[in-house]
């Protein structure tokens, strides 16, 4: 269980990284925190000729408020973001980060690394899709911006080319009208989720402007469902005064059919497809309710 031999380089700039990636294309891999890549190397599932360590790169942002977004640079570690005060502006990060692996993994693993790795059961790709984050990508021609919802193309596959580097991600910051919820079921704390959901509801008065639910661990990429209609009918005429349990019960009438569409992964030893569908149906109803209540009640808006 030792990594196969590889050449190693630690450039000082994004241009240096891209240059080394293109020189060895497609046999070079970026190493940021290594918490996903190194196990893959140890199991000899990958044998890159060159590892390009980006931890010395100077021209990437740290954690910065930029307009209506929180920008997180390529070398920002998950735990660093978790305890950064600016993360309060993106409540879904606060809710979801503790679920990523263990402390020991988050202390090295990076936010952008998790996105670039694109594990379909990982938390951060789902969060990025749910809040419609934008990903900044650098290549030899310059830079491009890709919306999270089109970034993930298949299991551990993204639109990133072999000579491209994900330099930062921009998470839109929350307003008083936004409510968020996050839940996942895994066999043990720190495991990848059997299934999980992350929800963003935006409600102004009685009007539900957004109700996006992204499920993960259910398909080869995170899948997002526009739940506005279902949530509108569940909250009904009474709006935010509807009893919480009544909303969830009403949602449960619709979510099994939705879960059947969303959950396409085949079962494994830890849970069949049917079990994951039931999980998603239940979690969706529960978390949509919670996010909706948080959206309409400014006092509980930001957890």
């Amino acid at each position: 269980m030792k990594a196969p031999p590889f050449a190693y380089v630690r450039p000082a700039s994004v241009a240096g990284v891209v240059e080394h990636l293109s020189r060895d294309e497609p046999d070079a891999k970026i190493l940021a925190g290594g918490q996903s890549l190194v196990p893959v190397l140890a199991m000899r599932l990958a044998r890159p000729a060159t590892i390009v360590d980006i931890n010395a790169v100077e021209d990437v942002p740290g954690v910065e408020r930029r307009g209506g977004a929180l920008e997180v640079g390529a070398t920002v570690r998950q735990r660093e973001l978790e305890r950064h005060p600016a993360t309060a502006a993106v409540p879904l990060l606060r809710l979801s980060m503790p679920w990523i692996g263990h402390r020991e993994v988050r202390s090295r693993g990076t936010v952008c690394g998790s996105l670039a790795h694109g594990d379909p059961a990982a938390e951060l790709p789902a969060v990025a899709c749910c809040v419609e984050a934008e990903l900044q990508i650098a290549n030899q021609q310059g830079t491009r911006t890709v919306p999270a919802r089109t970034f993930f193309t298949s299991a551990m596959t993204t639109v990133l080319g072999p000579a491209e580097m994900l330099t930062s991600v921009r998470f839109p910051t929350a307003t008083a009208e936004d409510g968020y919820a996050f839940a996942e079921i895994s066999r043990r704390h720190g495991d990848y989720a059997l299934a999980g959901v992350t929800v963003h509801v935006r409600a102004a008065g009685d009007e539900i402007l957004r109700a996006d639910m992204t499920a993960f661990g259910v398909s080869d990429t995170p899948v997002t469902w526009d739940a506005r209609e279902v949530l509108r009918s569940a909250t009904g005429a009474a709006g935010p005064d509807t009893d919480r349990r009544a909303i969830t019960t009403s949602l449960m009438r619709d979510t099994p059919a939705i879960a059947e569409q969303l959950v396409t992964t085949s079962g494994d030893i830890h849970g069949s497809r049917g079990y994951r569908r039931r999980l998603v149906a239940a979690l969706a109803a529960q978390e949509l309710t919670l996010a909706y209540l948080r959206a309409v009640d400014a006092t509980q808006g930001v957890p």
Binding site: A3, L31, V38, D53, N55, E104, R108
Partner: peptide, 26 residues
Amino acid sequence: EHGVCGMCTVLVDGEAARACLLFACQ
């Protein structure tokens, strides 16, 4: 040796990290 069991946990710059998931050259 692939980051699951936690036996190799050490402190790196004051934070616990898995020593099997870090290359010494980093």
